[in-house]
Simulated assay, not measured.
Amino acid sequence: MSATAPGAPGRPERLFRGTGEHWPDDVPLPQPPPWRRAPAVPGGRTRRPYLIGAEQVEVVNAALRLRRPLLVTGNPGTGKTSLAHAVADELGLGPVLVWPVNTRSTLTDALYRYDAIGRLREGRAPGAKAEEAAPGNQADPRNQAGGADDGDTVGSYVRLGPLGTALATRHQDRPRLLLIDELDKSDVDLPNDLLHVLEEGEFSIPELARLPESQARVPVLTEGSRERVTLHRGVVRCADFPFVVITSNGEREFPPAFLRRCVRLELPDPGPRKLEEIVRAHFAGPDLAGLDADWTRVKALIETFTVHRDLGGLATDQLLHAVHLLQQGIQPDARHLREAVLRELRDGGGR
């Protein structure tokens, strides 16, 4: 049911009117779409239904059984990123570890980060300097490389990245899931740089490997949490290969050696019938009642969406946004709204 503006029965509300008129304090704002509501668990992710064909499901299962990276390609909006979260949710693999790739990304970014500047600053803290400078005092050996507590000190400045954390940790005795998002945006050498780590399941952190034997065991921080894992001689070695999902928009080809080690999945653009299923799944529960009452217009919107997607590229999320506006009594096919909500993604579309 669409909300209406106070004092204007039957008219869709303008939440913001651009007139300086304040929205009444005792009138709640309309609910956002189900997938944009706050997650039940702090820091969690709002669960969204995920629908793909049976053949695509079999390919995902093949990658899971082989524990090989799943290389997912397809047009923007076909659900590449959402697939990783759906797999982690169904299999109980814990929060997805995400590595968003861009042209400046390096393998080290994904493995670990060492805050050398932070460690240097702490070693030069004013209190430490004053104590060291006092007549007859020697510098505290804990602030010197190779000191008795230096392993713990160095570990405080090392944090494993998403790939490093995926190798070093598990979730309730199950492997972690790592999402390498949009690898095709990377430098040309990065896919090959990944090969050794993904094949061997281990890597070494030089800043820890060169510590003396007395500091062989060092606890380090992990991605996205305050948890620590203890490394021996700076080596990260997986007890269980993580499940790696790699997405690509197909902007460039990957080296044959890299492709050979991946299970490849092409996600097609969903057809009208699949789009109807996706819309119903996202507006399940109380949101579905209003949708059924206006299903004829929803189907017409899906048909319009399909035509524009094939001409200039549209994402399924854009259709869901348009359906939600339709539920709210807004006409998303009005030209100015179509330009904003259903604007094509390719060729500078929007007409």
Results as ranks from 00 to 15, higher is better:
D150Q: 12
K185R: 14
R176N: 06
P175L: 07
A130V: 14
S186T: 07
D173W: 15
Q144D: 09
G146C: 11
V158T: 09
T169G: 04
R142F: 05
L167N: 02
R174N: 14
D181N: 00
V154R: 13
T169V: 12
G161Y: 07
V154K: 11
G127W: 13
L160V: 10
P141F: 10
S186M: 03
P135H: 06
K129T: 11
Q172E: 15
A148C: 02
Q144H: 11
L179E: 00
A166W: 00
S156C: 13
D140S: 11
P135F: 06
G136F: 08
A148F: 10
L179S: 01
Y157N: 10
K129F: 13
E131D: 08
T169D: 05
A134I: 06
K185W: 02
R170K: 15
V158H: 05
L190F: 07
D149S: 12
G146W: 15
L190E: 07
G146Q: 11
D150A: 14
G151H: 12
D184F: 03
Q144M: 12
A148D: 12
A133G: 06
L163W: 04
A168P: 04
P141N: 11
H171L: 03
A134C: 06
P162E: 03
R159S: 10
L167I: 02
A168L: 07
K129S: 10
N137L: 08
L167R: 00
Q144A: 10
A145V: 10
A148W: 07
L183N: 01
D181W: 00
V158G: 05
L177M: 02
A145F: 14
R176M: 02
Q138H: 14
D184Q: 04
L190V: 05
L160Q: 07
D184N: 08
V154W: 09
L183M: 05
P175W: 02
S156Q: 15
D149A: 13
A139M: 07
I180C: 00
A166T: 04
D173A: 15
D189L: 14
P175N: 09
L163I: 11
A134F: 13
A133Y: 03
D189F: 07
D152I: 13
V154L: 14
L179A: 00
G136R: 08
I180E: 00
D149M: 12
L183S: 01
